[in-house]
């Protein structure tokens, strides 16, 4: 069993499990900040999925997508937090 098999059949399913757990929290809420926390975690999990997929396929170019996702997720969370605070 080589590394790309491990990534494909071992790591990606585990990350899928984590994503499902987080989506459950996203749907359940109860408050808006809770959902934003879940969304933030989903994008970080997405970065993990991209990294694992890069190993599984042997394509390092996927890493650029991970960088862009990290940048956008931070901006999104900060914007959400800013507007939640302004609503009070």
């Amino acid at each position: 069993m080589n590394v790309s098999d491990l990534a494909l059949y071992g790591i990606l399913p585990a990350l899928m499990l984590a994503i499902l757990l987080t989506v459950a929290r996203l749907l359940r809420g109860p408050s808006l900040p809770d959902r934003v926390v879940a969304l933030d975690l989903l994008t970080t999990l997405g970065i993990g999925v991209i990294a694992t997929y890069a190993i599984a396929t042997g394509q390092a170019a996927f890493l650029d997508v991970a960088i862009a996702t990290a940048l956008i997720s931070f901006l999104g969370t900060v914007a959400f937090a800013y507007y939640i605070e302004r609503t009070v």
Partner: peptide, 17 residues
């Protein structure tokens, strides 16, 4: 490294839930 990473990711999901 991948196994450690996946373990902590699952912990994060479980913790959030």
């Amino acid at each position: 490294l991948m196994i450690v990473g996946a373990f902590f990711m699952v912990m994060a999901g479980l913790g959030v839930l």
